[in-house]
Design a protein around this nucleic acid. Structure first.
Length: 103
DNA sequence: TCTATGACTCCGG
DNA sequence: CCCGGAGCCATAG
């Protein structure tokens, strides 16, 4: 059973430490194809039921919480990030580079 | 097998 | 940074 794309994504996302965030592009790039950023989002959407996936730590390159629209509760994603010490304003992470984590 | 969709990103203006 | 357009990849039907 080979590791599928989404399985790798899950693996990486689970490695995101507390108080850190990453972008779809970063994950996609780590997987080999930067252009696969959309797949990362697709995977999270598919695995969003899995609480083991801290999808709230995954944002787009601008630090915008694009995924919150598909999240379980519009306020949940931002709330979680703020709880972890990540500053979020207007659905966007402040000082993204400061919190950005890379595998 | 082919088409459509998408939690994105890059390029030019 | 904003806007519009194009590209790219994997999954579902």
């Amino acid at each position: 059973m080979e590791k599928t794309f989404h399985q790798k994504v899950i693996e990486v996302v689970q490695q995101i430490p507390y108080g850190k965030v990453t972008t779809y592009g970063t994950i996609a790039e780590f997987l080999g194809s930067k252009r696969s950023a959309r797949m990362v989002g697709w995977v999270l959407n598919s695995q969003k039921n899995n609480i083991n996936i801290p999808a709230h730590r995954v944002v787009n390159r601008k630090g915008l919480l694009t995924g919150k629209t598909h999240f379980q509760g519009i306020n949940l994603m931002q709330n979680l990030l703020e709880s972890e010490g990540v500053k979020v304003v207007d659905n966007q992470i402040v000082d993204l580079e400061k919190y950005l984590w890379k595998p």
